[in-house]
Amino acid sequence: MVDFMKRALELATEALVAQEVPVGCVFTIEENIVAESRNCVNITHNPTRHAEINCIDFILHYCKTNKIDYKCYFTNITVYVTVEPCIMCAAALQNLKVKEVVYGCTNDRFGGKTVLDVSNFCDHSYELTGNLLSIEAMCLLKQFYKGTNPHAPESKIKKKKDS
């Protein structure tokens, strides 16, 4: 378990280096990694490209090329992600009926459990555990938010002040 989260943290670090919000994620089936990814929102200009969504897309593609029923495949998946999945990702994982989600630190701004409990929207909900290597995950986020997002447009208010 800890090893999977360590791998997710490596991916999150990779995201930080690439100036993306540092969140990493691995999907496992029976102790084997079947997908891994990190946040890539800035490079794709698509704010939904979170680590979990990338992993889901990877598995969907894998199932399609290998003619596997993805609906069945997802039910065996355990997700390790460095930050609690946001409302969007939590809903996506829930719709796909994944078995279990393990996360590092909580997500006070968009958490799919902390801010809005998405399990209220669906009959099925996965097992959810938090606080695995949460300090490490939080540290990466703090490093990112210390700097400014290089892709966000300059604040108009800030500009007026400067000029």
Binding site: P47, C86, I87, M88, A91, L116
Partner: peptide, 11 residues
């Protein structure tokens, strides 16, 4: 749905 609504917030 909830996934899309949150995606639109992110956007």
């Amino acid at each position: 749905c909830v996934m899309c609504s949150m995606a639109l917030v992110h956007a």
